[in-house]
Design a protein around this nucleic acid. Structure first.
Lengths: 311, 311
DNA sequence: TCAATAGATTGCTTTTGTCAACTATATGGT
DNA sequence: ACCATATAGTTGACAAAAGCAATCTATTGA
């Protein structure tokens, strides 16, 4: 990642922190003529949602000073909202629980918060609402570190719209990353359109890779002749690289081609695509011929790779 | 929008509020052994970035109590960080400015915050960073209301990748909204591939509509014969409807076709696409023939519309 | 010209949060 | 069994943060 991009990220995060600090302030004001402060409300929320919680647990969860929390719990207890039960496993702890009274107070608070947020959300245009929801979930996920946990990889056959996506992404990526010209988009579009028009499910296949729940890659196997299958349009999104998606896609193609009774799997690629080259080598492909060309603008070397499918 | 979607939005916003309240707490802790509280830091930021600002301005901007702010400014002034100048236009106000000392203090604070955020950002995986940045910008934009202000509409010729996008969106929308089958995607892909392969810039055109900075629609004019142009693949994203984008696209096509010397502009559509029908009628097209078909699955009526381009 | 209003400040008060000390229990090692 | 050390929870003392109301001055609009 370029440094300017990093700096922009930092600036965006800082801007967002300032922005949301203000919003949290508004949130606090919203509680102004309820019976609770923002911190009390947060504690109440924890009590209502984490059954059988202890004081230390809440303090850890919310990052509160134990002394401060102790006092808040005391006022709750005096107000008849919280009951304590000595923990069976640890005599130092008490298990906290909301009383009926406490639940009622929480319900009121909850309804109020719900209404406040609903008013805000309803004021948004429908697509703004959708975008907001998705964006907030993303922020949470990324910062929680859920974002860099292993997102599930899914390989599935193409669905309506996927072929267009393949063309779209090929064109955007190769013109952007390698400066290829419109000739490439034309070639991809023709290949893709042909695939749709002449699709033979027994002997042809298009696979789409999803990482998490976003499209991350594609590949096709098409019939060249009765004996020979061709692997085409292998693509892995830059953001999804490093998960072995390319390798998995090619493996599936090999398996499919073998199962469909082909004798050979061939493919055409270009020398500048070094990542792909490595995948093909690993899968057992052999480079059989090369010829320089400039069909896509910059001069490069086209390569044909073959894989013998016989056992 | 379905109600469950609204409820989910509300839940997501509330969850996010809880989440970010916690983060702001961490932020505050980060300032712990600096010389400033979070609020002081925010005031300092305003002073550093909004030149010639007044106390009331800051109070409004940050939602602070004027009395509280007054005291903060006094401590800044006593610390030699802020200077006041009587406002020339309003004798009640003072124009606030940071002294050299004040700038130095801000720079230190800024560097520290920068470093903190940088550490956090650097700990993210690269694509996480990108997603975070984009998502935070989105949240800000939507909540600031920038999201529902009039987003600029832009019509432009296609760029690499757009043709794929057109296929992608046609297939997704028509299979989703009307239950059309894969035959439709095939047709669109063939039309699009043909357009790329035989493109004649003097007599053909593809227009892409952007709303804000996202793709919102498309249309093509292709040569049918020397005398007749054909309008194809008119599409407006559901989220972008109601901005007159479809009408604008068709108008541009008519203008282009006339300028390119065609005598007639024709198009083929289907009766179920009522919104498009209205656009064609408004543009002056006349329905010249109809025939029922079920090429795309559900039975419908294909329609040919013509527009005479002669003056 | 005068009432209403906005900017700024101050005294007073409450709320919120921190810190350190202390008790009681738990845990792990020898 | 015993001891050092750590954790749960409480309390007192205190400091920081924030809010409220009164006040003064200048501005604005009728």
């Amino acid at each position: 990642m370029r440094d300017t991009e990093r700096d922009e990220s930092i600036a965006a995060v800082r801007s967002f922190n300032r922005f949301y600090t203000r919003r949290i302030g508004v949130l606090r004001d919203g509680l102004l003529n309820s019976d609770f402060s923002l911190t009390e409300a947060r504690v109440l929320y924890e009590l209502a949602h984490a059954e059988g919680v202890t004081a230390a647990g809440i303090a850890r969860e919310l990052g509160l000073d134990p002394g401060y929390l102790s006092r808040i719990l005391r006022t709750f207890e005096r107000g008849g909202m919280v009951s304590r039960m000595p923990s069976p496993s640890d005599a130092r702890q008490s298990i906290l629980a909301l009383t009926t009274e406490g639940r009622k107070a929480y319900a009121a608070l909850d309804a109020r918060s719900q209404a406040d947020v609903a008013a805000m959300v309803d004021a948004l245009p429908p697509d703004g609402r959708r975008r907001l929801t998705a964006a907030m979930r993303t922020v949470e996920a990324v910062l929680e570190g859920r974002g860099d946990g292993p997102r599930p990889i899914l390989l599935r056959p193409n669905r309506p719209g996927d072929i267009g996506w393949i063309i779209h992404r090929h064109a955007v990526l190769y013109t952007g990353e390698y400066g290829w010209n419109a000739g490439f988009e034309t070639l991809v579009a023709e290949i893709a359109a042909q695939f749709l028009a002449k699709f033979d499910p027994a002997r042809e296949m298009c696979l789409i890779a999803e990482l998490g729940d976003v499209l991350a890659g594609s590949v096709m196997v098409v019939r060249d002749s009765d004996e020979v299958a061709r692997l085409r349009l292998l693509l892995v999104e830059p953001e999804a690289r490093g998960h072995g998606i390319g390798r998995r896609l090619v493996e599936e193609c090999v398996r499919f081609a073998r199962g469909a009774g082909y004798r050979k799997l061939t493919l055409w690629t270009n020398n500048v695509l070094t990542a792909a080259r490595r995948i093909y080598e690993t899968a057992g492909f052999r480079l059989v011929s090369e010829e320089p060309h400039d069909r896509f603008g910059p001069p490069m070397v086209g390569q044909t790779w073959d894989l013998d499918l016989r056992p």
